[in-house]
Design a protein around this nucleic acid. Structure first.
Lengths: 145, 145
DNA sequence: CTCAGTGCAAAGGATTTGCATGCCG
DNA sequence: CGGCATGCAAATCCTTTGCACTGAG
């Protein structure tokens, strides 16, 4: 999705929940678009020194409620944020168990579709209403091997 | 795996890292065995009032290092713990996006094997050394529907 | 006896919030 | 103008840690 389309979509999504697409929020979305994967608060602060931490936290929460960003939690105790799949497309994460770095990857649609069906079946058995799935591959990244 | 086998295995795993299987640790493992899925610290405290929080935190960290338990992070900011797959078998999680409840489920081995291969392929392309995968299904649980 | 494990209370660190100020609609 | 967003600093909450005590070998 192109940058301007992202902005348009985000504007609409925020409007849905009676929120404005302010300057801070635009800068935040722009930072998230630059990454190869979800960013930590620290990374966002470093990437854009004009934004104070509190504004980042507050706006990420609002953007999360609006469905614009997704919070990704790893085991290192730091929250990470990325644009939702609605904006970036469906993808998964490679998570390095050594340095906790996270990068995106995709599977081909055939596998995804098989997986979807299997998950739907398992959900039905459990009386669970299925939504999105989340698939991460743990291991060791190129730099840590 | 039966309860006594679990204890034997845990004893061995702890021994590997020069740790003893103390009373507190036994109680902790017992609590984790009762759940239908990963438990939060609060749930563990409530389930066994004899254990102070600090002991729970400390021993869960030791058990994690020994490979006996796994930390599961959801988006609600609470860590959850479960016995590792070595003790319980490979499984996945249903996560309710409304109440953050987590329960276990499994997929049949055919799907798992297809998935493994696909993940291995994606990892190779990224120069990533693949390990375990983590698959969660988000949605709404029976109680929240 | 000795040393790891325990329990309490205090410290640490990521995240949230109160309040005065500034800015967009 | 009016109200929401912002920025700073203080507060909050989960988690970790220091220290003296206890219990297993």
């Amino acid at each position: 999705m192109s940058a301007t389309n992202v902005d348009d979509t985000v504007t609409a999504m925020l409007h849905q929940v009676d929120q404005r697409y302010t300057t801070s929020r635009r800068r935040l979305v722009a930072s998230l678009q630059t990454g190869e994967g979800p960013l930590t608060i620290t990374q966002i602060v470093d990437a854009d020194e004009t934004l104070p931490q509190s504004t980042i936290y507050r706006n990420l929460n609002i953007l999360e409620e609006a469905g614009v960003v997704t919070r990704v939690t790893t085991s290192d105790g730091f929250s990470r944020y990325e644009l939702t799949e609605e904006l970036t497309g469906h993808h998964h994460h490679l998570i390095c168990t050594n340095c906790d770095m996270v990068t995106d990857f995709t599977l081909d649609t055939g596998i995804e579709s098989v997986l979807e069906k299997a998950l739907a079946g398992a959900a039905r058995k459990a009386g669970f209403q299925p939504g999105a799935h989340r698939l991460d591959l743990l291991g060791t990244c190129k730099a840590c091997r």
